[in-house]
């Protein structure tokens, strides 16, 4: 149970970072932390007491494996996270080029 709560703490940390920090790079780090908390949680949900890794090798018997499906799904979700993060970082660099700052309180051309 404690592990799940730690996951929740990690997720909240990420959300806090997104909401509270003023530096764009820190916000991006917050997104990454929150995303990894969800991924970690997904893996933990699939864990079984004393389970072993779901790899079929020659001569092995299929017994007491953890659920392999979430691991495949998490891989997909990591790839999506990679694409999002790369795009966010590229946008952040462009923002720095245009505004000369990473501080979101100084970047507010859009209002209304």
């Amino acid at each position: 149970m404690a592990v799940y709560l730690l996951c929740l703490v990690l997720f909240s940390l990420g959300i806090y970072c997104i909401l509270r920090k003023r530096n764009i790079i820190k916000i991006i780090v917050g997104v990454i932390i929150a995303e990894y908390a969800v991924n970690l949680f997904f893996i933990l949900v699939a864990y079984r007491m004393g389970g072993r890794s779901p790899i079929l090798s020659e001569g092995a018997t299929i017994k007491n494996m953890v659920d392999p499906l979430p691991q495949a799904l998490v891989l997909t979700s990591i790839v999506i996270g990679l694409a999002t993060t790369a795009l966010l970082v590229a946008i952040a660099m462009k923002i720095y080029e245009k505004y000369g700052t990473f501080d979101i309180t100084k970047i507010k051309e859009l209002k209304g």
Binding site: I18, L88, I91, E109, L110
Partner: peptide, 15 residues
């Protein structure tokens, strides 16, 4: 403007 809007959109939508 476009960059700023895109950043805002990307962060919120990712959440």
């Amino acid at each position: 403007h476009e960059i700023e809007a895109a950043f805002k959109y990307a962060i919120m939508s990712t959440v």
